[in-house]
Amino acid sequence: MASDRLEVPEKIDSRHPAAERKDPGLTPWAIKGELVLNCNCTVFCPCVVSLGKHAPTEGHCQTWGGVRIDSGHYGDEDLSGLNIGLLIEIPGMMSRGNWKAAVFIDDRASHAAYEALVKIFSGQARGTTGLFSVLVGEFLGAERQPVSYVNDGKNRHITVGKKIQGTVFPVEGKDKDQEVVITNTEYWMGPDITVATASKGRVRAFGRVWDFEGRSAEICQIDWHGPK
C-alpha cells in the first residue's frame, strides 16, 4: 500500500563549510560566586557527604537557595553581579531523582542573561548543572524577581521578592574565628562546604509554604562551568 506521506527534501545549508554552527547546548559558560542552601533537615544535610545515597533526615527534602554571581558569562553575555533564587523539592534520596525545581532570576538581568540563566539552572546548558536535566522531573518554572544577596561578614541575607526571605550563618566551632568546613568532598556544588544554620528561612512560592528557621544550611563557594 502506497504511503501518503510526502517526502520533504533535506533543508539545504548554504553556509560555508568553515562557518561556526551555534548549538545552544554547546555554548561555553561559567559562574563563580557563592551559594547558600537552607533545607528542612534537622541536622546538617546528609546529602553532602553521602552524595545523595542517604535520605534527608525527614525522609524528603525541601530546599530554598540563593546564588551570588561574582563573575560569569554565557557565551558573550555577561552574568556578573546578578543573583539567583532557587526552590527545590526532592521526594526521597537525592540520587533517585524526581525532583521539582524552580528558579528566580534577578530582575536586573537583560533578556539574553535571563534566557542564559534559565538554561543554566534548568540543566539545558549542560556542564556542572547539567544533572538538573536528569534529576528534575518537573520544572515548576522561572520568574523574574528582585533578588538580593547580602553578606554582612557572617550572615548571608537572601530576599527574593515576597517569595523567599532567608538569613543563613555559619555554626560556631571551638575556634570562633574559624568556620566549621567539610572539605574535599565530591559534592557537585563544590568540594568545601561551610556548615551553617538559618535564623530565617521562609518560602511562599509555587503553592509551598515553608519555614526552616533553625534548620540545616550550607554555604559554598562555587566555580561552575559548561558545557563539559
Rank of each mutant, 00 (worst) to 15 (best):
A18D: 15
D107P: 12
R215P: 03
A18F: 15
G127H: 04
S80Q: 00
A196E: 07
W210N: 04
V136A: 06
L79I: 03
F132C: 06
T42W: 07
N98W: 12
F169C: 08
E143A: 12
A18R: 15
T63G: 09
V36D: 05
P146M: 06
S3F: 06
N83R: 14
E172G: 12
D70S: 11
A205L: 01
G33A: 01
S71P: 12
G130P: 03
T128H: 02
I222F: 06
G59S: 10
D152L: 07
G214F: 05
F121N: 01
L82G: 01
E186K: 15
V209P: 10
S133G: 11
F212K: 02
D4Y: 08
S122K: 09
Q221H: 12
N40I: 00
D152E: 08
T167Q: 08
S71E: 15
L87C: 08
T197M: 01
H111T: 14
F169Q: 02
S3N: 05
N151L: 09
R156W: 07
G123Q: 09
Q221E: 14
L140N: 13
S133T: 10
G214R: 01
E10R: 14
G207R: 02
G65S: 08
V160L: 05
P91I: 05
C41N: 04
K53A: 10
E20S: 13
P146K: 02
K163Y: 05
K119E: 03
F132V: 07
E20N: 13
E186C: 13
S14H: 15
L117Y: 06
G65Y: 04
H54K: 15
Q165C: 04
G97P: 04
Y114A: 13
S95T: 11
D76Q: 15
D106P: 11
K100V: 02
A196W: 04
G81Q: 05
E172F: 12
V36C: 04
T63L: 11
A102H: 01
P24F: 00
G81Y: 01
K119F: 02
G25L: 11
R15L: 11
W188S: 09
G190W: 09
D23L: 05
